[in-house]
Design a protein around this nucleic acid. Structure first.
Lengths: 125, 125
DNA sequence: ACCAGTACTTTATCAGATCAAGTACTTGAT
DNA sequence: ATCAAGTACTTGATCTGATAAAGTACTGGT
């Protein structure tokens, strides 16, 4: 009677972000490369950049911001929205740019490694 | 005086495997696609496939095997090395192949997403 | 006998992502 | 005026997966 529990296949459920684990810092640094942005703006930028296909959760991002600030890769300061609606702005530092460049390289290497490993075809031919 | 603490740059330290977090299962499934293998063999295959550049730690892999077996994606059985030197062999199941295919697709999508996000150039041009 | 390598295992720990909830303000609809 | 929804930020608890560190047990070379 088709009691098959494999039923929902929502075609494009928001991505398992765990696949990106370790890359969030780099993604945020990338978004900050050319302009300062406030936290929620970064969140929306990432969310919208993939048409909602992929989303990094707010909690994840705000934790990331804290980490990046602690490590000196970005600087933070409150905007002067005097009439309410506070926004905390983030700017990338020189150290942040250096780390960003390195991480992009590592990411390229990682892609190559995984692509290679996923093609491992068994013994020597 | 060059008291710069940025000194060591070992050219190619074994990779930060955390960059692959979430992909280990898929990599192992990939190695098992065409033949059954024992645990340590999988470990060496992965280690050697990248010339030692990248290594998934034994503890990580054995934990992965357990998880894959629990989820029915691989089957395990002891080899009949009667004179000692026990080896536990792993075989991919049909469910495992299905998951592998799906994961490879997800991985491709993930690459596209990250590559896109790392190129986010700011506002509309 | 000893050491290095093969082969498997367990326990504890850590970082990063997420859940769930909360605070506070603004704007649009009724 | 009030209410819901969106903007914007924050916190604490929890989960997963990777790792360190240690151990067991066997084999082959010196």
């Amino acid at each position: 009677m088709a009691s098959n529990p494999v039923d929902k296949q929502p075609q494009s459920e928001p991505f398992a972000a765990d696949l990106l684990r370790g890359h969030t810092d780099t993604i945020v640094l990338g978004v900050l490369r050319d302009a300062q942005r406030y936290g929620f703006e970064i969140y929306k930028t990432i969310r919208d950049a993939t048409g909602g296909l992929y989303e990094i959760k707010e909690a994840t991002l705000y934790a990331t911001y804290r980490r990046l600030v602690k490590d000196g890769l970005v600087e933070a300061s409150w905007g002067d929205e005097t009439q309410g609606g506070r926004r905390k702005y983030y700017r990338i530092t020189d150290a942040g740019r250096a780390v960003y460049r390195k991480n992009v390289q590592d990411w390229t290497a990682t892609q190559n490694i995984i692509n290679k490993l996923l093609n491992v075809k068994g013994g020597t031919p």
